[in-house]
Design a protein around this nucleic acid. Sequence first.
DNA 1: TCTTCGGATGTAACCGGTTTCTATACAATG
DNA 2: CATTGTATAGAAACCGGTTACATCCGAAGA
Lengths: 339, 339
Amino acid sequence: MKQKSITIYDIAREANVSSATVSRVIAGNYPVSEKTKKKVFDLIEKYDYQPNAVARSLTKKESKMIGVILPDITNPFFAQVFIEAEKYALTKGYTLILCNSMNSSELESKHLRVLSERQVEGIIFMGGRINKTYPEVSEINELKYVIEKIPVILVNGRMETLECPSISTNEAKGIELIIDHLVKQGHTKIGLIGGMTGITTTDIKVEAFRKSLEKHKLAAVNSWQIYSGYDVKRGKEAMEEMLKVNKHNLPTAIIGINDLVVIGALKLCHQKKMNNFSFVGFDDSELTQNSIPEITSVSHPYKELGEKAVDMLIKSKTTDVKAENLFIDPHLVIRESTI
Amino acid sequence: MKQKSITIYDIAREANVSSATVSRVIAGNYPVSEKTKKKVFDLIEKYDYQPNAVARSLTKKESKMIGVILPDITNPFFAQVFIEAEKYALTKGYTLILCNSMNSSELESKHLRVLSERQVEGIIFMGGRINKTYPEVSEINELKYVIEKIPVILVNGRMETLECPSISTNEAKGIELIIDHLVKQGHTKIGLIGGMTGITTTDIKVEAFRKSLEKHKLAAVNSWQIYSGYDVKRGKEAMEEMLKVNKHNLPTAIIGINDLVVIGALKLCHQKKMNNFSFVGFDDSELTQNSIPEITSVSHPYKELGEKAVDMLIKSKTTDVKAENLFIDPHLVIRESTI
DNA sequence: TCTTCGGATGTAACCGGTTTCTATACAATG
DNA sequence: CATTGTATAGAAACCGGTTACATCCGAAGA
């Protein structure tokens, strides 16, 4: 049952001033006599007057809202970035609208439209489907179209078909950190499992994997790098293949493309009673601390990702931010799995 | 760089009709001749005109937005409910605004205020701090104040100090399901770990635990029920105590107040090389499938919780929903840990 | 032929703020 | 004393829609 709330006019009337004056008192950006100021503030307090943000948005043509589109908030990576972004946005007077696309381009388009109609001032876009094989041409166009009207920033994603600013974890650096650590631990035989070719984030990691091995003058055995996918099941499968193919020459340390893949590999090893591998994950999700053993993992610069994304969008209201691609270094969290 | 978008007036001018007509064509709730209809629709398409939701909200006095306040979206329970709520809300033309309170009453108040100013039509409130020992009196007042103006619904929480509709998992039923299952597996010695007295959800579970044991005519050994808390560490501690206190008379099956607690207990058992317990968790979060062994757990009726919450809020716009407290039965997902 | 009725459309007020422009009063300056 | 400047405040337009009310017109009924 709706109920009308009091407006700036109610305050103005009772204070015997005009609405303009009340507005000025609240904004505080214009000289108002101390006497009126007090009168107005007292009334605001008395009635607990709250300005109507919708009306304000309309006149000021700024909604103070930012949209966030991501595949699935259940994924700890996205959740963490979102939380940081939200925390920061709040301090800047912005409100976030979260949209789960569930990896459906249809939903994505729908959300894009809703956000645009709601006059969000910018959109933070995260998701694995953003890569060079980005499949839906129709959707690129939709997104391109939106980008022309609303500032969009990609987090941990690149669209090679689209010019759009982005901010990402320096994943190559992450892989390098892992390998440096493993080498220091005495490993010389290192494998990599999970991911898919063609997906930007995988490609970056695989390339960094090769380069880092080279840096340490270690052999890059082809069969020690196995694509499979991104979830627990895929991790298990990859590990299964690893054991089969390299029966007589197994690596001693294995890097997973993300934490889930490592969980899968760990499960398989547990079943087979093979506890002789060192494992390293990527994302530093909660999983790493809950598994047995706890998993060494690369932690994303969550705070920076969330804050910078919001910041860039706010800035692009006034400045013409060029489509730059920012990278931030991650760090390695060492746990039981590599000791 | 903002950029003015085209308005209903632009369309009206080019179609040689009034804005009212365009509005009617879009709303489709008023007779308009086929000819004008076509003219208008063609122009809408030509310019990809999108109605300004902010302006619409202002006149219609309905924002079509619902606020969601929860402690931490990183928690899979909240995330899951949120996703279901969002999915459903979208089909009803509503947009959700997610606010993480991080269990801080200060943040909670801030969010409450922002949501209220943004004219949300309702608020979904979830969180552990809602219980009879709800600590911040100032905050109750704040919330009570909001409830008077905006419909609020609690999900899996009750505030005894406040009359407010709620929708919850029938957690007592969940405990009953667990014990029925364990008994069927032949267990007669069952323990419960985790949680805190005074927190509604724990109290409900503990009571159901006693009653269900009674139902099966099983002894309720006091030292088999150990409070500790809600996270992995607390689970570990509780299990430690369990082993110490009941050295000579241990239960054979142990229920955790939630999944995390079970993870902790499992870790301890793994360290101590004791693999002889059956474990059951609560929440059916992803954790249960990623751990070794996979954990039997009670699954919340996520879909119903999310949908009903949204539904109730939408309904309360037109009907005066009385403060009823709805309960929905959960179901048990059986996995390796109890086989 | 004159009403009457309903379909189709326009006019204008309104939602609740912000802001430009203008007006007033009073102090300072020449 | 006339002039200029400054602090304060109001009037009114505006943001982009929706809708109550008025109007016009042609068809149907008396």
